[in-house]
Design a protein around this nucleic acid. Sequence first.
RNA 1: GGAGGGGUGGCAGAGCGGCCGAAUGCGAAGCUCUUGAAAAGCUUUGGGUUAAUAGCCCCGUGGGUUCAAAUCCCACCCCCUCCGCCA
Length: 435
Amino acid sequence: MIDIRRIRNETEAVKAALARRGLDVSEIDRLLEDDAATRQAAGRRDEVRARVKELSRQVGALRKAGDTAGAEAAAAESRTLGEDERRFDAEADALAAKVRDALLVIPNLPAEDAPDGASEADNRPVRWWSSPVLPLGEDGVPHPEAHQSVPHWDIGTELGILDLERGAKLSGSMFPVYRGLGARLLRALINYALDQQGDDYEEIRPPTLVRTETMISTGHLPKFIDDAYHLERDDLWAIPTAEVPLTSMGRDEILNESDLPMRLTAYTPCFRREAGSAGRDTRGLLRVHEFDKVELFAYATPEQAAGIHADMLARSEAVLQALGLTYRVVDLCTGDLGQSSARTFDLEAYAPGCGMWLEVSSVSWFSDYQARRANVRYRPEGGGAPAFVHTLNGSAMGWPRTWAALVETHRRPDGGIDVPEVLRPLVRADVISAG
RNA sequence: GGAGGGGUGGCAGAGCGGCCGAAUGCGAAGCUCUUGAAAAGCUUUGGGUUAAUAGCCCCGUGGGUUCAAAUCCCACCCCCUCCGCCA
């Protein structure tokens, strides 16, 4: 969440920043009214408390001195004040809860240099990279060969490596089954990406079911409750991304600055209900309820954040390049930025069979928005008060769409799939062909 | 799932219902001494709110009892041990 003090002290600047997201900023004024009322109520309560404490001390002292009547009188006065204390406390608590609830659903302030815009349509492609087997045309879009123009759902059936019907039988639509070399290709992708991060990023295997508090820390709750799978009986949530458990690794902790940046990487399944997205770009692997992803994550000082952001982006791009996929880097505009993010670059791989740019990675800088929710701080080296860390994360990659772009891009005239060089040892095949 | 034990500051570990935001030890920082280091001595050393080194809040979490709760009561969470079950 945003620092309430910043909203108080730099109200107009905060409003202007939120307005860039297309937010109705009148709610900020209401929030500030509640905030002022909260502090007033807390002040009243604290005064009464101080008085009660003072009287209580007197009761003890008077009793010890044998002045029973005096002690009784002081106790009686304190008792009366107790009613005020309870009332003021309830009042302050209710107001504080109201302020917190409002704060939890207010999105992060976009970075200065995030491009302005109202929607996805205003996102700004900033860079292209083209694969030798799928060069970009003059018009900025690849023009695939005929053998590359087959969508992955057809390729999957052709080669017996993707079985959507069986997936639907087991779990419903948007739950794919990978088979044979298709499954091995997926596993190879995961292993390859994980291994690429080497010693810079500590490999983590977190739980995929987490507590409510863990989901709140990243901003996935309370606002996006309909997107998440919930296990009612145990009150646990299925994570939509490894970002969720990784961000909470340091929850309620104070890290040493010398430990920053703390960089983590994890492979996990990810679960998304995709409520309301039925029928929209959901064919094949374009949008699924359960998928595999490798994530990069970091806690950093504010000074380190920009460098880490660039490093994550470079690492994600390196994976796509090694896989020989044509992609573009898109700078998300303020209107399309996720709630918690200040700046996000998406990587979109071109899927020639579908004829679409597919979002396969999202690399984001969250400033201290998540750290404030999760209460992750660091102790500055030169001394001074603990400060909130910055969190960053990036996918490297979301695999179903990468898998789709890969099989479409590397489809040969004979219908087989050329396995990218780097995956061959892991797939234990150079070509995936039928039979 | 059953039985028992336990959750206090960076760590370890005390804490008759009032003088406890908390002894003591370790660790860390500063100073003295020293050519330097070690040792020794002295001092400092949790977080939050706030303009504040005022007041208030925080001893797993949430309730309750009381003039007064780290301390008593209730519920929940977590950890440990044993039994059961199990990949």
